[in-house]
Protein backbone atom coordinates (compact mmCIF):
# COMPACT_ATOMS: atom_id res chain seq x y z
CA UNK A 1 0.00 0.00 0.00
CA UNK A 2 1.18 3.53 -0.75
CA UNK A 3 1.32 5.51 2.49
CA UNK A 4 0.72 8.95 0.97
CA UNK A 5 -1.42 9.65 -2.08
CA UNK A 6 -1.14 12.89 -4.03
CA UNK A 7 -3.43 14.44 -6.60
CA UNK A 8 -1.76 12.47 -9.39
CA UNK A 9 -2.27 9.17 -7.54
CA UNK A 10 -5.93 9.91 -6.85
CA UNK A 11 -6.44 10.83 -10.52
CA UNK A 12 -4.82 7.57 -11.58
CA UNK A 13 -7.05 5.50 -9.28
CA UNK A 14 -10.20 7.25 -10.43
CA UNK A 15 -9.07 6.71 -14.04
CA UNK A 16 -8.61 2.99 -13.45
CA UNK A 17 -12.09 2.66 -12.02
CA UNK A 18 -14.03 4.92 -14.37
CA UNK A 19 -12.03 4.95 -17.61
CA UNK A 20 -12.66 8.69 -17.95
CA UNK A 21 -9.80 10.74 -19.42
CA UNK A 22 -7.13 11.67 -16.86
CA UNK A 23 -7.17 15.35 -17.84
CA UNK A 24 -10.89 15.55 -17.14
CA UNK A 25 -10.54 13.79 -13.80
CA UNK A 26 -7.70 16.09 -12.85
CA UNK A 27 -9.72 19.17 -13.85
CA UNK A 28 -12.75 18.05 -11.88
CA UNK A 29 -10.57 17.37 -8.86
CA UNK A 30 -9.29 20.96 -9.00
CA UNK A 31 -12.80 22.33 -9.58
CA UNK A 32 -14.09 20.30 -6.67
CA UNK A 33 -11.68 21.74 -4.12
CA UNK A 34 -12.11 25.19 -5.61
CA UNK A 35 -15.88 24.85 -5.02
CA UNK A 36 -15.33 23.72 -1.44
CA UNK A 37 -13.06 26.70 -0.83
CA UNK A 38 -15.44 29.23 -2.42
CA UNK A 39 -18.37 27.93 -0.39
CA UNK A 40 -16.39 27.99 2.85
CA UNK A 41 -15.41 31.57 2.09
CA UNK A 42 -19.10 32.43 1.82
CA UNK A 43 -19.60 31.04 5.32
CA UNK A 44 -21.34 27.96 4.06
CA UNK A 45 -20.84 24.45 5.39
CA UNK A 46 -20.00 21.93 2.72
CA UNK A 47 -21.64 18.60 3.30
CA UNK A 48 -20.43 15.54 1.41
CA UNK A 49 -22.72 12.57 1.83
CA UNK A 50 -21.08 9.53 3.47
CA UNK A 51 -17.78 11.41 3.69
CA UNK A 52 -17.97 14.43 5.99
CA UNK A 53 -18.61 18.13 6.47
CA UNK A 54 -16.26 21.06 5.97
CA UNK A 55 -16.93 24.08 8.16
CA UNK A 56 -15.23 27.26 9.18
CA UNK A 57 -14.92 28.39 12.75
CA UNK A 58 -14.03 31.77 14.15
CA UNK A 59 -11.15 31.93 16.60
CA UNK A 60 -10.68 34.83 18.97
CA UNK A 61 -7.45 36.68 19.38
CA UNK A 62 -5.22 35.14 22.03
CA UNK A 63 -1.79 35.37 23.51
CA UNK A 64 0.62 32.76 22.23
CA UNK A 65 4.30 32.11 22.54
CA UNK A 66 6.96 31.57 19.96
CA UNK A 67 8.19 28.10 20.87
CA UNK A 68 11.68 28.86 19.60
CA UNK A 69 12.36 32.13 21.36
CA UNK A 70 9.85 31.95 24.21
CA UNK A 71 8.64 35.39 23.21
CA UNK A 72 5.00 36.20 23.75
CA UNK A 73 3.02 37.25 20.69
CA UNK A 74 -0.59 38.03 19.91
CA UNK A 75 -2.26 35.50 17.67
CA UNK A 76 -4.81 37.45 15.70
CA UNK A 77 -8.46 36.54 15.43
CA UNK A 78 -8.97 34.33 12.41
CA UNK A 79 -11.14 31.79 10.70
CA UNK A 80 -10.08 28.17 10.57
CA UNK A 81 -11.35 25.27 8.51
CA UNK A 82 -12.57 22.24 10.34
CA UNK A 83 -13.64 18.93 8.95
CA UNK A 84 -15.76 16.38 10.71
CA UNK A 85 -15.91 12.95 9.23
CA UNK A 86 -19.26 11.35 8.62
CA UNK A 87 -20.24 8.36 10.77
CA UNK A 88 -19.76 6.00 7.85
CA UNK A 89 -16.21 7.16 7.21
CA UNK A 90 -15.38 7.01 10.92
CA UNK A 91 -16.63 3.46 11.16
CA UNK A 92 -14.67 2.47 8.09
CA UNK A 93 -11.37 3.76 9.45
CA UNK A 94 -11.95 2.65 13.04
CA UNK A 95 -12.18 -1.01 12.20
CA UNK A 96 -8.79 -1.23 10.53
CA UNK A 97 -6.65 -0.84 13.65
CA UNK A 98 -6.70 -4.56 14.37
CA UNK A 99 -5.02 -5.44 11.08
Amino acid sequence: MIKVLTKVDVTERVYKETGMPRTIISDILSDLFEEVCVNLKQDKNVKITSFGTFKTRYKNERLGRNPKTGEEAIIEARRVVSFSANKKLKEKTARKIND
Binding site: M1, I2, K3, V4, L5, T6, K7, V10, L29, F33, L89, K92, T93, R95, K96, D99
Partner: peptide
Protein backbone atom coordinates in the same frame (compact mmCIF):
# COMPACT_ATOMS: atom_id res chain seq x y z
CA UNK B 1 -6.89 5.28 1.53
CA UNK B 2 -7.82 6.57 5.00
CA UNK B 3 -9.37 3.31 6.02
CA UNK B 4 -6.19 1.47 5.07
CA UNK B 5 -4.30 3.80 7.40
CA UNK B 6 -2.72 6.03 4.76
CA UNK B 7 -2.99 9.70 3.95
CA UNK B 8 -3.97 11.85 0.97
CA UNK B 9 -2.37 15.21 0.20
CA UNK B 10 -3.76 17.89 -2.08
CA UNK B 11 -1.40 20.79 -2.69
Amino acid sequence: QLSSGGRVEFR
